[in-house]
């Protein structure tokens, strides 16, 4: 089989995943998009492995590892999302702002009392 088909498929998968990561607000969907990206990588690796006729089968072995990694990531990720959802009632990434950098603490303007403490 020609290498192009799986690689193009993987590229499409990856781009879909990347789009999802960038465009989705729901944390679960972002998570799923990431998994899509990982799947694309796995496909890539297997395809290259077969194409290269790697005697060590590195690509396939690595893909197995990736599957395990992906599973672990999903496990932890879902746990975190659920926790956030329970605490905040939302899993939309852009609504989580508690930890944002505090912006522009108002400073007394020149001339206002308080800037020059008079002894």
């Amino acid at each position: 089989m020609h290498l192009v088909y799986p690689v193009v498929l993987a590229a499409l998968l990856f781009c879909t995943g990347l789009y999802g990561v960038l465009a989705r607000r729901n944390a679960i969907l972002v998570l799923m998009s990431v998994e899509l990206m990982l799947a694309a990588v796995g496909l890539n690796l297997v395809a290259f492995d077969v194409w290269l006729r790697d005697e060590l089968r590195s690509g396939q072995v690595f893909t197995l590892f990736l599957i395990a990694l992906g599973a672990a990531e999903i496990g932890i990720g879902l746990a975190i999302v659920l926790l956030v959802h329970r605490e905040r009632g939302t899993s939309a990434v852009d609504r989580l702002r508690e930890l944002r950098e505090p912006r522009g603490t108002p400073r007394p303007a020149p001339g206002e009392p308080g800037e020059h403490p008079t002894p």
Binding site: L64, I67, A68, A71, A72, I74, G75
Partner: peptide, 8 residues
């Protein structure tokens, strides 16, 4: 997920 992936 933990166990099934392990068994892979």
């Amino acid at each position: 997920v933990i166990f099934a992936v392990d068994s892979v």
